[in-house]
């Protein structure tokens, strides 16, 4: 018995990157725009998808609802009569390209124009797992505290749209919405930042305008 030392040089994130590119390629071929909906737990991700499904006329919507074990979000969205699929991670705190790869195999991509993928509610873990999406939406709400944006620079840095939800509750929870918006713009000057309240209908039109704009600009 003797000791050896092997230079491995193995990239441990390579596999996820490879599968994410495969997913992206498949979605491109099917002319589907995929949106990774990320954000804090309970911030309003599922409600955003539900309201969007109801308002987006002229496009066929699909949704993959990620969660550790529950299927509640799936049931909520499926009620609206769109193609939906639950995707449970079992124990992982984020979706990854591999899980989404298998979900896409079973999904009727020919029947949809846009696919929402709700990630596990968490501002840290999903960040470094590209799913093959075209856009990233990151949602937080004022009830997480007005320092929640500043405390999680990475997820906001890599977002395309940043939504500060439940703004009508800001006074009640003593949150400074402007501070949250400023933090978001500072961390990501290119992102679209939307102040929203899904219960009061604030900011929803702005979101739909962004969505229609990216759907119109897709090729094909």
């Amino acid at each position: 018995m003797h000791r050896i030392e092997v230079d491995a040089e193995m990239d441990l994130l390579e596999e996820n990157r490879r599968l994410a590119e495969k997913n992206r390629e498949l979605l491109r071929k099917k002319n589907v725009v995929a949106i990774n909906v990320m954000g804090a737990i309970g911030s309003g991700k599922t409600l955003l998808i539900e309201k969007t499904v109801e308002s987006l006329k002229g496009y066929r919507v699909g949704a993959i609802l990620g969660d550790v074990i529950a299927k509640d979000d799936y049931e909520r969205v499926a009620k609206h009569g769109v193609k939906a699929m639950p995707l449970n991670t079992g124990k992982e705190c984020h979706l990854d390209a591999h899980l989404v790869h298998h979900a896409l195999e079973d999904f009727d991509l020919d029947g949809i124009d846009v696919l929402f993928i709700e990630n596990v509610g968490n501002l840290i873990c999903p960040v470094d797992f590209d799913l093959g999406e075209n856009y990233r939406v990151v949602m937080v709400s004022v009830t997480e505290g007005d320092d929640v944006v500043g405390k999680h620079p990475e997820i906001f840095r890599l977002a395309d749209v940043i939504i500060i939800n439940k703004v009508a509750l800001a006074d009640a929870v003593d949150a400074n919405v402007d501070k949250m918006v400023e933090d978001a713009k500072r961390l990501n000057p290119k992102a679209k930042v939307i102040k929203m309240d899904l219960k009061k209908g604030i900011g929803f039109d702005e979101w739909m305008e962004w969505l229609r704009c990216v759907l119109q600009s897709r090729e094909g």
Partner: peptide, 26 residues
């Protein structure tokens, strides 16, 4: 990463910081 430069207001650029390699095994 703080987003915007505190000296000049310029945008910050990030390179690396996302790697994960298995380098050696004994």
């Amino acid at each position: 990463y703080v987003g915007i430069c505190d000296e000049c207001g310029g945008i910050l650029k990030v390179e690396g910081g996302k790697e994960m390699f298995l380098k050696k095994v004994e």
